[in-house]
Design a protein around this nucleic acid. Structure first.
Ligand code: MN
Ligand code: MN
Ligand code: ZN
Ligand code: ZN
Lengths: 152, 152
DNA sequence: TAGCGTAATGAGAACAGTTTGCAACGAGGG
DNA sequence: CCCTCGTTGCAAACTGTTCTCATTACGCTA
């Protein structure tokens, strides 16, 4: 049997990225990223929602730390920040399978669907090229009414 | 010679649209729309900018009225509201020649360029159709670095 | 053209989302 | 186990926008 001392916890990518930058792993940071990993991709949470999900499951994290951590996770490319308008920006796990998806939003009830479209990506690339800009990111937001909200 | 009383001022589309809705034409409303018409399309102003442009040319309009008027002009489809992120929403004259253009934004200096692309419009239509949503509007924001900002 | 009802304005308070300053805390290298 | 310095919590500050309410004035009517 292996003695306890010989366990060497494999540092997660998150932890090693932090370390290599002089930053520290904290329980708060772990909890925020874990929340997103547990709920999976395709979910778009506001800072307030992240906060209440954590506190209502007994965790103690301040809202300021949520904001600081979300910013950090975006910079580290673990999360993606969305500006869907209406009630604060939202954050989602950056899925490397669907890095460049776009959003269809019901402006009445907030229902949000995702879709991918290469033409959109190419349109962004083309526009940047035409003006000599260096492309960073392009996002298409489609505002609409969902079936439920449109017939009433 | 025609007597002053016989002049019948042709009401502008703005004025007649207002009237037919029980609303009133006011000097403030006239000034805000005129500002946009004078500077032309392709210019994206924040509420604060509209306010300071008017007050610095001697007009007296409150910021609250600017916000109310901008909202009204958007609803009346004289203006278009843009959510380019960073420093408040912006407004532009809704040009009926280029109703569906998109924006390329330098995230460093704020330089903004416009472009059109039918594939983007079609992508929005297709996404709405796929999910049974009723399309309202779709906007592609391309975040990038302009030539000046990218090489320094 | 004066009078009137009511829409619109100005000024500031309120608000929502987010950031920041600072003292206390604690991760983690030595 | 200690010390250092990055991180946290809390409250105050901030930014963009909306709201409240007393006052003004547009424009219909006589
Ligand atoms: Mn998404
Ligand atoms: Mn434009
Ligand atoms: Zn809906
Ligand atoms: Zn630039």
């Amino acid at each position: 049997m292996i003695s306890p001392a010989s366990y060497r916890t494999h540092p997660s990518p998150f932890e090693s990225d932090l370390r290599s930058d002089g930053k520290r792993m904290t329980p708060q940071r772990k909890k925020v990223l874990s929340l997103f990993e547990e709920i999976g991709s395709g979910i778009h949470l506001s800072a307030e929602e992240v906060h209440s999900k954590l506190t209502s499951s007994g965790e103690k994290v301040s809202l300021a730390t949520i904001y600081r951590t979300l910013r950090l996770l975006v910079k580290m490319t673990f999360l993606n920040e969305l500006d869907l308008s209406e009630g604060g920006n939202r954050f989602e796990l950056l899925s490397h399978d669907h890095p460049d998806h776009h959003h269809l939003i019901c402006i009445r009830c907030g229902r949000t669907e995702e879709f991918e479209n290469n033409n959109v990506i190419n349109a962004g690339k083309a526009a940047a090229k035409n003006f000599g800009f260096k492309l960073l990111e392009s996002s298409l937001n489609v505002r609409a009414l969902c079936p439920k909200c449109s017939n009433k």
